[in-house]
């Protein structure tokens, strides 16, 4: 059994950046007065000459990052997902995505698990916004080990990347001994033949607990972890659709434009099967402790198991 690390993916991100920057001199980091929260502060302390705090000016930060990339740097521009993909959407589109510049955008405090700060800071649209940009890769790691490898992969990839980071500390479930991150490839975490659960981000652990619990009840549910939402792994989705006939998607994001829509897009073109989406239903969040909110929005082991069970029973 692998060691369980309880860490927020934002922290894993900050640590990974520092490790990579030791050997890669082109890595520079930008933040917009949230370095304590996005954990780029760890990098700032170690590499002050390569850290640019842009102050509370996210639009400027994205275009500055574009200018740095145009001169050969590998900039990571970090702030909350809300202000990166929402406020600075147009700068990301025109300064970064259109010229295909090698900028990595790190959106922290994504989803409702921001918690007490409430709706203004709970960005559940970031993946949808970034997905629409031509050439933008979208990566949503699930635990400490996956984030560590995802940051490495983002550095190796030449082009714009959106990396989603969570605020909430989560238990790791991957085993670093045999984990490998392959950009654009889903990972089957649990085999099953009755139905497939496809999850992304820090909610994957709950989905894993749910399918294990269902197994004890005699239900064979497959679980696929999609860390790269764009480009999405069509092959693993089509295979799941063909072999299990039903899919449930789980994401801490709006069901409009997120993982569920990407999966449905693949199945509708290549192997139409019913797709049920668990996620934020066309609504805003509200204040409250993160874990309580996740439960209230159905993003927890019990609800995932219940939804899957209902579908299998009524099939």
């Amino acid at each position: 059994m692998a060691e369980i690390v309880n860490k927020a993916t934002r922290e894993s991100f900050g640590l990974a950046l520092c490790e990579l920057a030791k050997t890669n001199k082109d890595i520079v980091v930008l933040d917009a007065d949230l370095s304590g929260s996005t954990k780029t502060g760890i990098f700032a302390k170690q590499f002050p000459e390569r850290f640019l705090n842009c102050g509370i000016a996210e639009g400027n930060m994205m275009s500055v990052a574009a200018g740095l990339a145009a001169c050969g740097k590998i900039p990571f521009a970090a702030t909350f997902a809300m202000f990166a993909t929402g406020r600075a959407y147009e700068q990301i589109r025109n300064s970064i995505a259109y010229p295909k510049l090698n900028v990595k955008i790190a959106g922290s405090h994504a989803g409702i698990s921001v918690g007490e700060d409430g709706a203004t800071h709970q960005c559940c649209e970031d993946i949808a916004l970034m997905k629409t940009l031509p050439g933008m890769a979208v990566i949503n790691p699930a635990d400490h080990w996956e984030m560590t490898e995802a940051v490495k992969a983002a550095v190796e990839l030449d082009g714009p990347v959106y990396l989603r980071l969570g605020r909430l500390a989560v238990d790791s479930f991957n085993d670093p001994e045999n984990y490998s991150f392959e950009f654009g490839k889903g990972i089957t975490l649990h085999e099953g033949s009755d139905i497939t659960v496809i999850a992304s981000g820090i909610i994957v652990k709950d989905a894993l607990d749910a399918v294990r619990e269902l197994e004890a009840q005699g239900i064979s549910a497959r679980l696929i972890n999609i860390h790269t939402i764009k480009p999405i792994d069509e092959e693993i989705i089509v295979r799941a659709a063909k072999e299990t006939g039903r899919i449930v998607t789980v994401e801490e994001h709006s069901i409009i434009g997120g993982l569920g829509d990407s999966v449905s897009d693949v199945t509708s073109r290549k192997c139409p099967v019913p797709v049920t989406k668990i996620g934020i239903q066309d609504r805003f969040g509200y204040s409250g402790p993160a874990k309580e909110l996740l439960k209230l929005f159905g993003l927890c082991k019990d609800n995932i198991a219940k939804v899957v069970l209902d579908i299998v029973k009524n099939a």
């Binding site: 640019l52 639009g59 990052a65 740095l68 145009a70 740097k73 300064s95």
Partner: peptide, 25 residues
């Protein structure tokens, strides 16, 4: 052409990024 531009305000920031890159290097 050193930078794509057209959406006003963004080129000024991109130029800052380039100048910062020169300073860092």
């Amino acid at each position: 052409i050193d930078m794509s531009s057209g959406s006003l305000g963004q080129g000024a920031s991109a130029a800052c990024g380039m100048a910062a890159a020169a300073k860092i290097d």
